[in-house]
Design a protein around this nucleic acid. Sequence first.
DNA 1: TTATGTTACGCTTGACGTAAACATA
DNA 2: TATGTTTACGTCAAGCGTAACATAA
Lengths: 105, 105
Amino acid sequence: MNFKHLYYFWMAARTGGMIRAGQRIHITPQTLSGQIKVLEARLGCQLFERAGRNVQLTEAGHVAAGYAEEIFLLGEELEGALKNYAKASRNDDMRARSVATARAD
Amino acid sequence: MNFKHLYYFWMAARTGGMIRAGQRIHITPQTLSGQIKVLEARLGCQLFERAGRNVQLTEAGHVAAGYAEEIFLLGEELEGALKNYAKASRNDDMRARSVATARAD
DNA sequence: TTATGTTACGCTTGACGTAAACATA
DNA sequence: TATGTTTACGTCAAGCGTAACATAA
């Protein structure tokens, strides 16, 4: 499972298109289209289908988008949770001096 | 959040060492050590600390490992869930013939 | 001695990302 | 005119091999 590809897919699904997704995460539509194709090939099923000049999620795509949502929200939570520890370990002296004072910062 | 780095960290945490983790996922210990260091730098906190000739999780490391566990289990679930759809889209004829018969397969 | 982890260096490879052209609505 | 796709191409980070070093059983 390539999580970078999954992220591209998720952004495309959320924004409803390659161009809008690309603007949001600063990636060109060609790249998004290509990388999502790679993801589809690895998973063995189609996630998007053309709908006029736009794309829309297939049934499998909806399932994948749901999981992706959970996964990337957890990723954000992880980063948020570790920010507390990040302060404490900014330099090693702090731990030696006192754990309590690190909190005052 | 680089999920590849997180995966390396998670494997090292699960197996309790760089060498064991490396054997399991076919990555050299140098690479694991280095890539995990990159992860720590990005997160801004230490995840492992030396414990004798081995490494062990810091408090932050335990938190991160918990999230990583959830994330990668979800990833596996996702792949499993899409295997059903994978059959259906193996060739496009099936959809044209019938959605119901695809299930019997 | 032996086992583990860390750091460093040069090198190769594959994934990433772009630009340009194309297809379609 | 706006969107998505395909192709060809350059770039860069990932990972390896090798080696040296530190630490601890």
